[in-house]
Simulated assay, not measured.
Amino acid sequence: MPEIGDVIGGRYRVLARLGAGGMGEVWAAEDAETGAPVAVKMLNPAFAAMARPRMRFLREAGVARAVSHPGIAQVFDVGEHDGAVFVAFERLHGASLATVLRAETRLPLRTFVALMVRLAEVLVETHRAGIVHRDLKPGNLFIHRSVSSDELELKLIDFGVSKLATAVDGLHTQTGSFLGSPRYVSPEHVVAPASVDARSDLWATGVILFEGTTGGYPHRAPDPARALLAIVHQPPIAIDSVRPDLSPGLRSIIRDCLKPKLSRLGSAVELRDRLVDVLRAEDPSLDQTLPPREPERGVSEMTDSLIPETVESLTGARAFSV
């Protein structure tokens, strides 16, 4: 792995280490040619010769390049440095939604719904391109604070386990393999991972909406394994029983996202339009803040360490207008 001052790929001068995950590290760097700030994600050399980790790492960069949208972190370059594969992408300033949901300073509900509108807009474009993310969760939603406008911008990150809806997926060919985050996967993802389509992303969005508005998951279980069993065999907790004070429109969206596959909300376009309607309705319930997140042991997100500003400053930034 590089050291401070090293130049990665002959172009990106390393400034600081931002964080680390199971397969690699993320570094703050400067483009030596343009002076622009970038982030460089490097795959640990130990995984470089392993087909599956390398495929996942390069897939993330490929998807980000294939879909041009301001809600996806822009990829500038892909290459190798001292035997390690790297991806250079735009430097983000802020925190993951996972961090924000667990912060003492509570995010306004109106801002949270506006962030979900932005997520739905990104899903509209990725689904049109035939790409299913398959790992939507708060840790993969980065809330970037724009320096120029002081507004919050949501960035969808980590397409490492995404798939083309029409492609045979090499990441799922091994017996017993499972990719995704257990608390957020759809029932069909658990039972038949190869059959996953865009509707699984809508399920995961429903889980995120439920989590943000209630502080917990729609399927309560003490560990990930039992969470998967609950998702397959039990109905989700009814949002109406937990948060009857929420606007009817928002509760209906959560219900429809968490329905069985064939009766689930129809598309990311419908999700976006209905969330926009919730914001435009100016329901008084949107003026409250999100409830405290229920404590959870062993939670750790690599993106949570990429926080140049405090969560307090994020929650004080202006929300989107729609």
Rank of each mutant, 00 (worst) to 15 (best):
G94S: 09
G94H: 08
A95T: 03
S96V: 06
L97Y: 03
T99F: 00
V100F: 05
V100G: 05
L101R: 03
L101Y: 01
A103Y: 03
E104H: 12
R106F: 00
L107R: 10
L107W: 04
P108T: 10
L109M: 15
L109Y: 14
R110E: 08
R110P: 05
R110F: 03
R110M: 01
T111K: 15
T111C: 13
F112H: 02
A114Y: 07
A114V: 03
M116K: 07
V117A: 06
V117Q: 04
V117I: 07
R118V: 15
R118P: 11
L119F: 13
A120T: 07
E121C: 01
V122S: 13
V122Y: 09
T126F: 01
H127L: 13
R128V: 04
G130C: 08
I131C: 09
I131L: 09
V132I: 12
H133E: 03
D135F: 09
D135Y: 11
G139I: 02
G139P: 04
N140K: 10
N140V: 08
N140I: 08
L141Q: 05
F142Y: 14
F142Q: 01
I143A: 06
S146R: 02
S146I: 01
S146H: 08
V147W: 15
S149R: 07
D150L: 08
E151W: 02
E153W: 12
E153M: 14
L154H: 07
L154D: 07
K155G: 10
L156F: 08
L156I: 09
I157R: 06
I157N: 08
D158F: 05
D158V: 00
G160F: 09
G160C: 06
V161G: 00
S162K: 13
K163P: 01
K163N: 10
L164F: 11
A165F: 04
T166A: 12
T166L: 12
T166H: 15
V168S: 11
H172I: 11
H172S: 14
Q174G: 01
Q174P: 01
T175F: 00
G176M: 10
G176S: 09
F178V: 09
F178P: 13
L179S: 08
G180K: 04
S181H: 06
R183S: 15
Y184C: 09
V185A: 12
P187W: 00
P187N: 08
P187S: 07
E188M: 11
H189M: 05
H189Q: 15
V191D: 03
P193Y: 03
P193G: 00
A194N: 13
S195F: 12
V196T: 11
D197E: 00
D197W: 03
D201H: 03
L202N: 11
L202Q: 11
W203N: 07
A204V: 05
T205Y: 04
T205I: 06
G206C: 02
V207G: 04
V207S: 01
L209C: 10
E211S: 05
G212F: 13
G212S: 10
T214L: 03
H219C: 10
H219P: 10
H219Y: 15
D223Q: 06
P224I: 13
P224Y: 10
R226I: 09
R226W: 11
A227V: 11
L228G: 00
L229I: 10
A230Q: 12
A230P: 02
I231T: 12
V232C: 12
Q234A: 13
Q234M: 14
P236N: 10
I237R: 15
A238K: 06
D240W: 13
S241K: 13
S241Y: 12
